[in-house]
Design a protein around this nucleic acid. Structure first.
Lengths: 194, 194, 194, 194
DNA sequence: GATGAATGAGAATTCATTCAT
DNA sequence: AATGAATGAATTCTCATTCAT
């Protein structure tokens, strides 16, 4: 993997990453083959290895990119006046996405990879979303836009824990639904902040 | 006419399951091969298939066994007078276990398998632990041993969500510890019940 | 395979052979396992090897027995006054049986085994049915019960060839049926004998 | 964008098919392993799967190729003036080939596979040869080049049935020979057409 | 830079046969 | 005689990665 032409490298990496995303969503991290990605990216199989050392490093890059999107979503909270409503909205979106089987599988697979392989772990930055949320909560609390009942760290932990569990439940329990999860989240939020 | 040697079957299944456990803890569910297990159990490869239909059903059996232990732990709550203290203790143990990398990986891998393959899923029984806890909470609430601030279902969801997130954090964030998780859990519990 | 108690040997061999027949008809020669047969015969797996040297020799014995039944059917022709009608009936039965997928598969599998393995071949006695039929035709011709247009040998060859092809066609061609095969056989017979 | 190197594909498929043919003739369809074929073709095992989806589809391709040759042979009949003589010649060749043990075994094994597995069957196209012959007979009859005594369908059935039975007999009965089969075929033909 | 053909180490699973009890 | 647990070679198919062109 020699990097010379930075511009081309960025372009090709983006292209591959996009293709990878599509494949991952279709079949999950493990079941996606390098050939799948090459085909989807309309690039040659061998050429992927010019831009990513191996499959694992491609996955790492994918996760990193994904995290950025999450960050961006939570960043919206920083300027929000009605923090609670916006948070409810963001979480709703979050659960809604994560409660799709494919997304959940990617998320969990990434977590497993991260736990086993220190490198990915550093990128997961300890479950990025929780950190982002914590920061947002702290800011909002400082600005008096909300009043926290528990610490920001704990609140973030509880909220993200809820999101995950609720999303899994949406997939596994036919009696449970995204709608119900959203209702419960409002209840949950009441116990954490005012 | 058929003499199924129940004793031997149980013994061998136990032996295989134990070997599997060791392998799983070392290399995870996916990376463990049937041959690994056979070698670890000091048994021939083919002989495993006498006791377990295939790898998936072996994993299922492994998870089921694990679930039983969880059930047993939560069952203790049903007769407990000081519900809260006991719950704190159980959760402490839970986090302590799950925060070991190997256990967490297995847990997550099982979840992924369950999500992809309905069969394993049915045994996961939608995250068995949450169901168990919910039931225990309901009983305790009925018996006036605790006073729930949110519904039993939601409380169980939040608690188990917290456990998972906290455990992951224990592994991934060097600044976080089981001890801190336990402290936070007490805070968390305060918001859910009296 | 030590034979001592002749009576027991015969009894057990019969039992195994019967079980084998059932299994073969269900799943074919190749796909039937020795365990299948043991289970069906309600006998232990290892015990089969006391009465048959191996799977192949069991199959050989099975074919031999099957051939006897065919012989018996054709033997009926020897005393028949209206030879033609009886032959038509026998062939009808024959096609009807052979046009069942399972039977055809067994027949063909046996033929392959026979061709490859001289031992079975000797038992096939060159497609036993053709020999039987030829003999019957010769007798009937001698007794003036029929008048052959071609030689008995050729007639037998043509008839049995027709039976096989027609049976395969019944299985493979949805537009073809046992009924049609029977009609065609009558036509065929007209060209062979009076 | 996709450049499928048709030339290479054809070349490699041919190479594999040739190797497969050799192996099949040596050990039959079932006993030939993919590794055997790879070794014979001097190609890596995995590479076969680039050119054929799986073993069955390789077998299908093999049979299809064989069928084409048969079609071509029978197609000669369509322009023939002396239909009968040419047919006798073709059948002679046919019996001569099929009466080689290896060919017969492959033919029968293919039939079994076809019977069990609809896919192969569809390619067998219900015993391709019979269909081809039937068509040729119909044409010749229409053109007054021959006069059929029985229907074209029945004649084709009888002829191909004879071919098969005679070929088997050539293999199994040391007293029977290809020469004798050819003589008998002439007799047979006399009863079917003028 | 790009291509995609080739590689080959595995992986799960099956089953005839043996042999200690 | 009978049992059935154990064996392990064999088989198909997959896929990350390499490398000649």
């Amino acid at each position: 993997m020699k990097k010379i032409n930075t511009q081309l490298v960025a372009k090709q990496q983006g292209r591959i990453l996009l293709a990878a995303k599509n494949c991952f969503f279709k079949n999950g991290l493990t079941k996606t083959t390098m050939r799948d990605i090459a085909t989807e990216a309309d690039i040659s199989l061998g050429n992927i290895y010019r831009y990513f050392e191996n499959k694992n490093s491609l996955i790492r890059a994918f996760i990193e990119k994904d995290n950025q999107e999450i960050d961006r979503a939570f960043a919206l909270l920083d300027d929000a006046n009605n923090f609670k409503t916006l948070l409810e909205y963001i979480i709703k979106e979050f659960i809604s996405e994560l409660s799709r089987k494919a997304e959940m599988c990617i998320y969990l697979e990434a977590l497993v990879l991260g736990l086993r392989d220190g490198d990915v772990l550093s990128l997961l930055k300890l479950d990025n979303s929780e950190q982002s949320l914590k920061t947002s909560l702290q800011k909002a609390s400082k600005d008096k836009r909300i009043e926290l009942i528990v610490s920001a760290e704990l609140a973030a932990l509880i909220i993200m824990g809820f999101v995950e569990k609720a999303a899994v439940k949406c997939i596994a329990d036919p009696k449970y639904s995204v709608r119900k999860a959203n209702k419960q989240f409002k209840q949950c939020l009441k116990t954490l902040l005012r």
